[in-house]
Design a protein around this nucleic acid. Structure first.
Length: 278
DNA sequence: CGCCAGGCTTCTA
DNA sequence: TAGAAGCATGGC
């Protein structure tokens, strides 16, 4: 990887590749939005940036080189060798097609609390509305950045009441958010610690939270705790598995099931597989 | 307008 | 232990 200071951005090259549009808008993170100049705006760990991809080179605006190394290198999973993982996916017909069509979809290493919270909001909900709820959540309770807001901390959230959350219009998920915040803020659940335990242990711990079942736990494990072998199964993934993989996941996904999951999710979502979407 | 959404808890048999 | 009901809200 090469990193250099350009005039008004940090330029990162030779890290492999990324399909930025899909990676930032495939339902794993909910706060990125693209402006008219194809620049993606987002806030990670309270740091605001805008990013674009030109010829396998990423350009980060508004941040320092140090902030890139401290935050965005890991967030965009730039230390992982996707080439070899995606090459092995080519042993499966459907994944091979998906990789061919979509290029490199990376797993975003989000903050554990943000991932947990986001996927509690996601339960039985559609992506546009999830985005709206999370945007209102940040706007109402997050720390302001230059032109946006950070994701509200678990501590801040734990200090809120159910009535405070009315502005989110998140329905029955509001009490789930509060109980999760309290458990995290009080240390009953140590999210950082879960980064270094098995995915089975992650699921066992996370499902102790009221409102967190297997699926939300697995999303948190994959998108917030760095476990790419986690494989969240929602209604879409269940359907695609029943149709394409009735005997189970192909062997070539072993150890990177979470990455395969993103390709499968995107296949289903965009209706790119004949026979799956009727 | 009606159907459905990256589910979960609770109730029932 | 498995299946259905109920849950708030709004995108399309």
């Amino acid at each position: 990887m090469f990193v250099k200071n350009a005039e008004n951005y940090i330029e990162v090259s030779d890290f492999g590749s990324i399909n930025l549009d899909i990676t930032l808008d495939c339902g794993q993170a909910f706060r990125w939005h693209k402006d008219r100049d194809n620049l993606w705006h987002g806030v990670v760990k309270g740091i605001e940036t805008a990013v674009e991809c030109v010829d396998d080179t990423l350009r980060f605006y508004y941040i320092t080189e140090k902030q890139f190394y401290d935050v965005f290198f890991d967030y965009f999973d730039l230390g992982r060798d996707y080439t070899s993982i995606l090459n092995s996916f080519k042993n499966d017909k459907y994944l091979a097609e998906a990789v061919e069509m979509y290029g490199t979809i990376r797993i975003l290493n989000q903050e554990p609390w943000e991932a947990l919270c986001s996927f509690i909001f996601s339960a039985c909900n559609n992506i546009p509305r999830i985005k709206g709820i999370i945007e209102r959540f940040c706007l109402s309770f997050g720390e302001p950045t230059a032109s946006s807001y950070g994701f509200p901390s678990a501590q801040k959230t734990a200090s809120l009441t159910l009535e405070d959350l009315d502005v989110l219009r998140c329905g029955y998920r509001a009490p789930y958010i509060l109980s999760a915040a309290k458990m995290v803020a009080e240390g009953e659940i140590d999210l950082e610690k879960l980064k270094s335990v098995t995915i089975e242990e992650c699921e066992k711990e996370l499902t102790k939270i009221h409102g967190v079942g297997k699926k939300v736990a697995d999303c948190t494990t994959l998108f917030g705790l760095g476990h790419i072998e986690a494989f969240p199964v929602d209604r879409h993934i269940r359907r695609i598995c029943e149709n394409l993989y009735p005997e189970g996941l192909p062997e070539c996904t072993k150890g990177a099931e979470g990455i395969a999951q993103q390709y499968m999710f995107h296949l289903q979502r965009t209706g790119h597989i004949a026979g799956i979407n009727d």
